[in-house]
Every structure is written in structure tokens, then in C-alpha cells.
Computed example of a mutant assay.
Amino acid sequence: MAKSRIRKFRESFLYAGRGLRLCITGERNFRVHMTAAFYVTAAAVMGHVTSTEAAVLCLCFGLTMGAELMNTAVERLCDKTARGYDRMVRDAKDIAAAAVFVCAAACVAVGVCIFLMHGVLAAALRFLAARLWLAMVFLVTVPAAVWFVFFFGRKQ
């Protein structure tokens, strides 16, 4: 009995990982959120955010990506069940998309508070200016990020 519970517990992680992989490979907007989280995290580290600011940023990332995952689930379920155009399906999909938008807008507000009002962005830019080699490495990642957002997971 204990082995069965452990196996089911382990399987729940495998299923969640599969869902995450499906969203990463199939949803451009999710990749946008992941890429933004990467660059914001890098800037936060370079700008020496406090542990509280880091925790708030992590919550923002989690809420936005979680909302995007739920939006994707709603869209796929609606697409599967709808037969032709359905106003209620359209409304459900629009509301789910609005949830992602609200989370992303809140993240932008948090980012403004942390990066602009607390001077984290200025500190990160000073950090990069003192290490031009790192600034160049950072710039080199931009084409990879663009490829990841727009082309990763596309079927040939």
C-alpha cells in the first residue's frame, strides 16, 4: 500500500512535468513569461535586491506562469468541447486570457516599484558597466531568447 502511494505521488510530479513541457513547447506566451523571468532575475541579482524583493519577484513569476498554464488548460478544453463558434467558449477563453493579463500587469507594477523606485535597475546597470564582458555575454543571449520565444517547439 505504501509503495502504491509513493508511486502515485511520483507520478503526479511526472504528469505536472509533462504539462509544463507541453506549455513550454506549445505556448509562445508562456515562453515570453519564462524569458522575462530569466532577464528580471539576472537584473535582480546584478542589482542586489533584498530577500523580500526577491521573494515578491518569485511570487510574481509563479502567479503569472500559473495563470498562463490555467489559461492554456481552459483554451485546450474549450477547443476540444466546442463545435463551431460558441459565444460562451469565446467568453471563457477571453476571461482566462484576462486573468493572465491582470497578473502580468501586477508584475509590471511590482517591477516598477522594485527596479525603478528602489534603484535596482540603476545598480544593475552600474554592475554591468563595471564588467563590460558580462554586458556582452548578456547581449549575446538576446538572439537565443528571441529564438526560444518565437521558434522553440515549432514543428518543421
Rank of each mutant, 00 (worst) to 15 (best):
Phe127Pro: 00
Thr72Cys: 05
Ala96Ile: 07
Ala96Leu: 08
Leu139Ile: 14
Tyr39Val: 05
Met117Thr: 13
Ala98Arg: 11
Val100Leu: 06
Ala122Pro: 04
Phe38Gln: 01
Cys103Pro: 03
Arg28Val: 15
Trp133Ile: 14
Lys80His: 14
Phe138His: 10
Arg76Asn: 14
Asn71Ile: 01
Leu134Gly: 09
Ala73Ile: 10
Asp94Phe: 12
Leu134Arg: 07
Leu57Pro: 00
Asp79Tyr: 12
Cys78Asn: 07
Ala105Gly: 07
Cys78Arg: 04
Leu128Phe: 11
Leu59Tyr: 02
Leu63Ala: 07
Tyr39Gly: 04
Met65His: 01
Val40Arg: 00
Asn29Thr: 13
Trp133Gly: 15
Ala122Trp: 06
Cys78Glu: 12
Ala55Pro: 00
Val137Lys: 10
Ala135Tyr: 11
Glu53Val: 00
His33Ser: 09
Ala36Gly: 07
Val49Phe: 00
Cys113Tyr: 11
Ala54Lys: 00
Gly47Thr: 01
Leu57Gln: 00
Asn29Gly: 07
Ala105Gln: 04
Phe30Thr: 03
Ala123Tyr: 03
Val89Phe: 06
Cys103Ser: 06
Leu125Asn: 04
Leu132Cys: 09
Ala54Ser: 03
His33Glu: 11
Val45Glu: 06
Val120Phe: 02
Arg28Ala: 13
Ala99Asp: 07
Val110Leu: 08
Arg28Ile: 13
Thr64Glu: 06
Arg126Leu: 09
Gly84Asn: 06
Cys58Met: 07
Val112Asp: 09
Tyr39Ser: 05
